[in-house]
Amino acid sequence: MTDPVDTQKRALRAELRERRAQLPQAARDAAAQGVSDQLDSLVASVGAHSVSCFISTPTEPGTRDFLTAAVRRGIRVLLPVTRVDGLLDWAVATDDENVAEGLFGLPEPTGELLGPIAVNDVDLMIVPAAAVDGTGMRLGWGRGYFDKTIGSMEKCPPVYAVVFDSEILDEVPRDRHDEPVDGVVTPTRTITFAAARR
């Protein structure tokens, strides 16, 4: 029997992927600069000394400039590395951008691997998303890695998803295992939700 929520999610993800694929390069470059500025301000406002983030793909809102600048400023940045068991290992980012293709073809760091609990030490989590709604519910890309990580943390720090401005929606389909985020970062703004989690 087909799960109606799963069907809705698949359709929405396909639509959002298509939209992202059609963005011109100039718009991607401008978005990357905007995201970098917004993330810099967020890190400063949280007072974060250690953050987790992700290496953006060519169609995602760009995080690479932010990552390089953060590492050079002395911020400890953990990057996710996917595992076959559905958990995430972590590697400390360096400013030389040594990346390789990970389990699902996504860019991942090549440094020394830390176990899943390494993320418990960060002050701020920055996660990818397909979309986020006004209540802080995040639609991921369907593999559940970040939902599982956020849901298993005893003391979860603030979690912010990164999306394009058009990907803040009125509502996204949700399952019981889906974890909301505390805020969303776009190329033009950062929104903190009132009481999404905890």
Rank of each mutant, 00 (worst) to 15 (best):
G134S: 06
T135S: 15
T135Q: 14
T135Y: 04
T135G: 08
T135M: 14
G136I: 00
G136L: 00
G136A: 02
G136R: 00
M137T: 01
M137Y: 01
M137N: 05
R138Q: 05
R138F: 01
R138M: 10
L139T: 00
L139C: 07
L139I: 07
L139A: 03
G140Y: 01
G140V: 02
G140A: 10
W141R: 11
W141V: 03
W141T: 04
G142P: 11
G142A: 12
R143K: 15
R143F: 15
G144F: 07
G144M: 08
G144E: 08
Y145C: 07
Y145R: 02
F146E: 03
F146L: 09
D147P: 09
D147V: 02
K148F: 08
K148E: 09
K148W: 09
I150N: 04
I150Q: 07
I150K: 02
G151F: 13
G151V: 06
G151N: 08
G151T: 05
S152A: 15
S152E: 13
S152Q: 13
E154C: 10
E154R: 14
E154H: 14
K155W: 10
K155V: 09
C156R: 15
C156I: 04
P157E: 06
P158T: 04
P158H: 03
V159L: 10
V159I: 13
Y160V: 01
A161F: 04
A161S: 12
V162S: 11
V162T: 10
V162E: 06
V162D: 08
V163S: 03
D165M: 11
D165Q: 10
D165I: 06
S166C: 10
S166R: 11
S166V: 08
E167I: 03
E167R: 03
E167Y: 06
I168D: 05
I168G: 03
I168R: 04
L169Q: 07
L169K: 06
D170E: 14
D170L: 12
E171R: 15
E171Q: 15
V172H: 04
V172D: 06
P173K: 07
P173N: 05
P173D: 06
R174G: 06
R174M: 13
D175K: 12
D175W: 08
D175H: 13
D175E: 15
D175F: 09
R176M: 13
R176V: 12
R176S: 15
D178I: 02
D178K: 02
E179R: 00
E179I: 00
P180I: 00
P180D: 03
P180E: 01
V181Q: 00
V181A: 03
D182I: 01
D182Y: 01
D182S: 10
G183M: 03
G183E: 06
